[in-house]
Write a protein that binds this DNA or RNA. Structure first.
Lengths: 357, 357
DNA sequence: GTGAAAGCGCTAACAG
DNA sequence: CTGTTAGCGCTTTCAC
């Protein structure tokens, strides 16, 4: 009766076949949804019952070797422990799992060497496709992947060459919403703590800043941009100090993400300025808990889970239907107004002045 | 010259062998660190060069099928998008990657049905081991896994049967540190917002609460426990209200995690009470940003990354050396004092009174 | 509708 | 030290 061997799953098609008194290829056909129709119902039933009883599960390694499809997709992200990625992964996983795929996730800490190792690992493991969150402009590692014709979708950032589809959010729009909001409150001197310009998010947001100010006819003298060298609190703090030194008349500071905004809070505190009374501050990403800060942060929410879902769907279309028509998906961000933004002091005093056009 | 076929990696040991003018099994031996010593250096060099030139990578599916080791470990967590797990995953990944393993991560939203599906998926994919973050007391799914003799390590929670090793933190100690701190500040009436008691963390922390109070000789009349039905802000808010209704003399509220503490903040605000002046509040986990709240939250930090590292190491010992001696690892939490705790009003008034004891 | 046979790419006895 | 051979468990022609 020795039925449970020492290690690993040992039940194979052959054993199920013996139990069900059919050929093992029949078992294979029954277990595979695509070929199930070839088998008589009564035989199928018998096989299924035997499989169930023995606890059979298809060996994904063997199947993958044979079919050249692993039903695994690789995901490479810069920081798994940041508020941004986990919800995206959730969305990816959701789509993947319901289609019988799993994800292997690698974290690179933004280190190109680690990215390259991760990519090699993924190739060796025969992943069917890749979701890449670490793209940089003209990323060379993408080249190799795309050349092989392997499916790839970029998220959050793009390499801006159009070699592969991406799922991003509209950063220019998002910053535009912020500026509209501030303009409506009456701000006319707005500073920007920009993010690193080599990341597409950093670059797009500062472009958005410039464009939105132009749209509102605010120009030189009514704005100032300081680039933070990293998306961190400390970098935000330093940048905000520099900003206020160069541009003391600023009544609002638009940060390129929430962490930078938090650094801004610190800088204001250190200067004895109050937010939003003296200076309004805005963030980007709507990270968890920023609604609990003092003051609760006005920020831009991006649909993280939807990014993951869209990326996974695009990738699967490419993998399963070889549908290469995918173009970039651009999702809409949303302004979340909280209490870190208010009318500027001056505007409050002049609030009875006639509306400007 | 057709060298790059349409899809997937097509370079195999045979092609490398042909290029290097050796037998293909020699190539295999060169590529595998364990058998590399069997080959003459000069031959090895030739093979390596050819492999490099052709861009050869071992097909992990084929190797896994043959060796019955996939070098994949499964990780099952309840909520990937919570502040708790990502840093743990980071630690796991770090150890795994440097040993040539990758992780496939499944998220269950605490749904037993999803957990079971995840487990089945992992089995089918021949994972070499499992890190389980969803264990509940007497979890039946663990049974099947352990029975097969498959390596398993639990994290954060244990099923409390000792069938498999776990890596957890010492919740009783952690809460003890909190109580010591509060006692030293002079608190003598302390309430507890407990977490769900079916989760080992919830249960261990309330036990720790009771034990610590006993140690400090505070008894009935000097404490009250209200169990929140979920680890969420809203549940914490409700529980805190209930707590203060039943036990209005409380000068401190110890929450079983940070989210519950945040709910406590809200409840206090709704009652017009100030923290820490009227009531001190503590959390647990030291989630990101809780240092930025008003007031910054006194909480307990748990070594998340280390949990991941320890779990991965334990698992690999079991997988690679079949070292089954592993016992539970219990890591030390650490008190982080911030500004949500202060001496109680009364104690302030009496601060000139002689020290007790 | 079901059986037979081949082979995915690799590793690991076993020979020499 | 290197070559030969078999086979991991599966899918998928091709026959019947």
């Amino acid at each position: 009766m020795r039925r449970s061997p020492r290690r690993g799953q040992r039940v194979t098609v052959r054993e199920v076949a013996r139990a069900a008194r059919v050929h093992f290829s029949t078992v294979s056909r029954v277990m595979n949804p695509a070929t199930r129709g070839q088998i008589t119902d009564s035989v199928a039933k018998r096989v299924l019952k035997a499989a169930e009883r023995l606890g059979y599960r298809t060996n994904a390694l063997a199947a993958g070797l044979r079919t050249r499809r692993s039903r695994v997709v690789g995901i490479i992200v810069p920081y798994i422990d940041s508020p941004l990625y986990p919800p995206i992964l959730l969305g990816v996983e959701e789509v993947l799992n319901e289609r019988g795929y799993v994800a292997i996730i690698c974290n690179t800490q933004n280190d190109p060497a680690r990215e390259e190792r991760a990519l090699a690992e993924m190739m060796g493991r025969q992943v069917d496709g890749l979701i890449l969150g670490t793209a940089t402009r003209g990323d060379p590692t993408i080249e190799a992947w795309v050349k092989r014709g392997a499916p790839l979708v970029m998220i959050n950032r793009t390499d801006q060459t159009g070699r592969a589809p991406s799922v991003i959010t509209d950063d220019r729009l998002g910053i535009g919403l912020v500026i509209d909001h501030l303009a409506q409150l009456g701000h006319q001197a707005i500073g920007h703590i920009a993010g690193p310009q080599q990341l597409s998010t950093g670059a797009a947001r500062s472009e958005g800043f410039r464009a939105a100010l132009a749209r509102h006819r605010m120009r030189a003298g009514s704005r100032e941009i300081v680039v933070a060298d990293d998306f961190t609190r400390e970098a935000g703090r330093r940048a905000c100090h520099q900003l206020l030194n160069q541009f003391p008349q600023a009544t609002a500071v638009v940060a390129a993400n929430d962490l930078l905004a938090l650094g801004g809070y610190e800088a204001l505190r250190e200067r004895g300025l109050s937010c939003p009374k003296d200076v309004s501050v805005t963030g980007y990403n709507d990270s968890p808990f920023v609604d609990l800060l003092t003051p609760p942060l006005t920020t831009v929410r991006i649909p993280q889970r939807e990014i993951g879902i869209a990326a996974a769907r695009t990738l699967l279309r490419r993998i399963e239907d070889n549908d290469t028509s995918a173009t970039d998906v651009v999702l809409r961000p949303e302004l979340v107004v909280r209490q870190s933004t208010a009318a500027p002091r001056l505007a409050t005093l002049l609030s009875n002045a006639p509306e400007r056009r």
